[in-house]
């Protein structure tokens, strides 16, 4: 009785790897010109997406004693987003904001995560 329990414990059942689901190509007739490149996106406009948990991608970043607030997942015109954010959130001084255009990140000096989140919630749906 006892021996069988031990042997069962040591049995490792290999978990089958999930098979890759190939990407399904939509038909050409189902897409519109606005969904293709050169639709005017990135010219004085931008897009910021929420995380899969429905939160704004705003995080506190600590590098030793340097504390900044990082806004991620921004696509398009980062400078315009910086302008709009500093206009909407009066607590942000535009001199304390840096942008990383290639990665789509925006950094604000200091910990203002909750303030930025509530500001985005008020002005963006």
């Amino acid at each position: 009785m006892k021996a069988s329990i031990i042997s069962l414990k040591s049995v490792k059942i290999p978990i089958p790897k999930p098979t890759v689901k190939p990407y399904e190509i939509p038909s050409l007739s189902s897409i519109t010109a606005e969904q293709l490149p050169n639709n005017g996106f990135g010219l004085k406009n931008y897009h910021i997406s929420k995380t899969k948990f429905g939160e704004w991608p705003v995080y506190k970043k600590i590098q030793n004693t340097k504390v900044t607030t990082e806004v991620k997942r921004i696509k398009g015109d980062l400078d315009q987003f910086k302008k709009d954010l500093t206009n909407a959130c009066s607590f942000i001084n535009s001199q304390n904001v840096t942008v990383n255009k290639k990665a789509g990140y925006l950094n604000i000096k200091g910990d203002v995560v909750e303030k930025v989140k509530s500001c985005l919630n008020e002005n963006l749906v």
Binding site: E34, P37, N38, N39, F41, G42, Y46, H47, N123, L124
Partner: peptide, 8 residues
């Protein structure tokens, strides 16, 4: 906020 949809 000048939000626009990126190309899909």
């Amino acid at each position: 906020f000048n939000i626009a949809q990126p190309p899909k």
